[in-house]
Write a protein that binds this DNA or RNA. Structure first.
Lengths: 107, 107
DNA sequence: TCCATATTCAACCAATAGGTTGAATGAAAG
DNA sequence: CTTTCATTCAACCTATTGGTTGAATATGGA
């Protein structure tokens, strides 16, 4: 994944409102007003959050007349998970090597 | 995971310098100066990045004389990965339900 | 046509991020 | 001791976030 794309994805995930929006979109597409309803903030604020999610390409917009229908795009989520998993594999591999070295030392 | 902890973790991961620091720490602990060496920015800037990683508890500090030794703490990484995986499971479950509904409809 | 609805745009604001430089602290080494 | 090394603290700067309110735009419906 492009570094800047990861930046955008991780930043988008670093806010509880945006995570809640993603979670909501997990059960199906929704209009802006529907997405905004649960939150104690203005529609405009939610609209801005949606733009952050769009920048990260976590969310796609489709216009149907005056309504904008948002839907989830899981790919950046996959790529963020892949980055984390790679780090964890790398880290545990090095830990294992350390343990083997210690075992050798103890012999 | 606490929402605010996830906020801190995701935000910490949303910067290429900090991700590189984590990657470096994957292969073993390091001093501040060592961590800063690869980057074209001041030591102070890297010191700040480290504080962001510490706030997220992705990194731990141990003092040895005048040196501060940083090491990786993978737990927040695990919890971030768990959040993402949960979303993906939820999402694919709903997609599957949708597909089943479509299959029924087509019958 | 006129009004209501859905949404964004624009301007503003306070707080935070991400960087700089310069000074302070504190340990090590000569 | 005095100097060097490792690191943070403090102040500052600019850009971005995350929110607000008010106006603009565009579609739908009576």
């Amino acid at each position: 994944m492009e570094a800047v794309a990861l930046d955008h994805t991780m930043l988008a995930l670093a806010d509880p409102t945006r995570r809640a929006i993603l979670q909501r979109l997990g059960s199906g597409e929704a209009r802006v007003t529907e997405l905004a309803a649960p939150f104690a903030m203005s529609l405009n604020a939610v609209s801005k959050h949606i733009r952050v999610l769009e920048r990260a390409e976590l969310v796609q917009r489709r216009r149907a007349g005056r309504e904008h229908i948002l839907s989830l795009n899981p790919k950046p989520l996959d790529e963020a998970a892949a980055w984390i998993d790679e780090q964890r594999r790398f880290w545990t591999a090095n830990l294992d090597a350390l343990e083997r070295a210690l075992a050798d030392y103890e012999d």
